[in-house]
Design a binder for these strands. Structure first.
Lengths: 334, 334
DNA sequence: CTGAAAGCGCTAACAT
DNA sequence: ATGTTAGCGCTTTCAG
């Protein structure tokens, strides 16, 4: 690997000037800058991040913590984070906190403390008190997507409002017998999202003067299969039947569509279905949904981190992420 | 951040001994080792990767290049890579080479040359000559998943054999009018996988003495929607109709299932469908498929990289990845 | 088995 | 605007 000395020699300047010219910090005459540029180019010189970060304290590397890699939502957010960061010349090191509790502990106790990163983005991780503390002790900018966590800067979407919007859409179309799939207390790990969404659902019903029917609340695990099973129950049981289903995620909504078809219900003529997320398959299934723009969430977090690194400007502790009702073909008037 | 000196002081030894005790390199008396351990523990000391890597040349960090983050197959492989590497205490830095050609160039020209990684894993990236060259020039172990690339150590599944197996399954069930969805020359970027699979399909037919019907070859883009459209064409056109469809990916196979249902065909009574991959939704759709175990592919690559880092042992240039026919409910006798 | 000390390749004062 | 130089926090000879 070619080092800074060789570039300095070829450009006829000191290593300090090479460093300044290449990093843009400090003053360098245009002439020197140009000579350094060409010399570096000619030699194929790239600053060694190990040496540079030891000397400067900056790594140009951001740590990203995700709970899953193989689930659509998280990998989509990650994709947004990654593209924004790479365009800014930053590397990203990935910490995948999966089921394994040992690995999770190690990430907070060791991995993140190796001084390998300048900042941390935590995507949809429910951090306990000690994890939050460890993150804070790193002394680095930390941004959490999904929250809220009162001790961290967080970007969150108002899940209750999202659910109210989806439900209000159904109500606006004249539905009064609306079922909800999600609401799974056992699955309520990540910021109580299932619960938040169920609450929004119930609020919207209350606002419309409707008493929720407990039989219209069906727990599910946020997968296609889970949505499928839940919808089968909802539609197959004897007794009153909903005219619309609000699923707490698009994947469950897709499962519900398939279940409805299976049972011979036409969507949306016999049954309206709406989800949440903005899943890539939504268009294919003509699914009405409330989009929460996961790619943009990732990009937004990346930009905030970069801004904080550039100019240590303080920002408000929390901020709301946008969402939008997308009306497609799975919802219609009663 | 607490430094090695503080640990040395507390343990009553030199920094050299601390380094040796913690890294396991060189001899340290059990007594000293223990004192160092407790001191480090007490102070919450973690070796600084920037200092350590500058001094030793080792980063304990692996670079992983992926073409997409938000597609099931790639994020699943990545998940396998990540879990295996994290368990070994390694960090991973992620290079997502997407559509943007500038970013791609930068990754090879700059990002990978920052001396931030000990080795590189390239997941399903079709590397051109100069990219391969740049990778080789890093002087690091490089392992490619998907290939083959004669100049790199590659782990590949024999796509032709996979396709032959899927087709043979259909033939074994008595099908003779078999259509193929995939074969898209325009989409033939990644190692000509569509072409390989089409060739396997044709070989299997030839082995059975069947002349392929050109009308039974329908190009598609490897998405659910693409498979859906292709199947609609195949099944809707007047003239001879296939009794089975072999889709070059599970996502397309799922699209085909939905298209068949849409048109009133029962699967598998009226039409058999098989895919390739081992997609997570395969079980839900009862899809027969040839599984290529993407998580295991990632883990395998990770273990190979670690083995090469441990003991610079040479390995053969290429090796075959396993695959397996999974017969579920979408295929049946004619 | 252990300590002293010389770097690893760069950056950031501090001079000039 | 540029050069000199002292580290950054470890690892690794080299002695002992």
């Amino acid at each position: 690997m070619v080092s800074i000395d060789e570039v300095a020699k070829l450009a006829g300047v000191s290593t300090a000037t090479v460093s300044r010219a290449l990093s843009g910090r400090g003053h360098v005459s245009p002439a020197s800058r140009e000579r350094v540029r060409t010399a570096a180019e000619a030699l194929g010189y790239v600053v060694s991040s190990r040496a540079s970060s030891l000397a400067s304290g900056r790594t140009r590397n951001i740590g990203v913590i995700v709970p899953f890699l193989d689930r659509w939502f998280f990998s989509t957010v990650l994709s947004g984070v990654s593209s924004a960061l790479m365009r800014a010349g930053y590397d990203i090191t990935l910490y995948n906190i999966t089921a394994d509790a040992d690995v999770r502990r190690e990430v907070f106790a060791t991995f993140l403390r190796r001084q390998r990163v300048d900042a941390v983005i935590a995507v949809s991780i429910e951090l306990d008190e000690s994890e939050t503390q460890l993150l804070l002790e790193l002394g680095l900018p930390v941004i959490a997507i999904g929250g809220p966590n009162p001790r961290l800067r967080t970007l969150t979407v108002d899940d209750t409002a999202v659910a109210r919007l989806a439900t209000a859409h159904l109500l606006g179309l004249g539905h009064r017998d609306i079922a909800h799939i999600g609401a799974n207390p056992e699955f309520d790990l990540d910021f109580h999202i299932p619960t938040q969404r169920r609450l929004g659902f119930e609020q919207a019903l209350a606002d419309a003067g409707i008493t929720p029917n407990p039989a219209f609340l069906e727990p599910a695990d946020f997968t296609v299969d889970g949505g499928f099973r839940a919808a089968k129950q909802l539609l197959g049981r004897p007794g009153p039947r909903p005219t619309a289903i609000f699923a707490a995620s698009d994947e469950m909504a897709i499962g519900a569509i398939l279940a409805a078809r299976d049972l011979g219900f036409r969507v949306p003529q016999d049954l309206s279905i709406i989800g949440i997320d903005g899943h890539e398959l939504g268009e294919f299934f003509q699914l009405s949904t409330v989009d929460q723009f996961p790619i943009a969430q990732g990009e937004r977090a990346a930009h905030e981190v970069l801004a904080r690194l550039d100019q240590d400007r303080e920002m408000s502790a929390a901020s709301e992420l946008p969402f939008e009702l997308i009306v497609r073909g799975t919802t219609a008037r009663v």
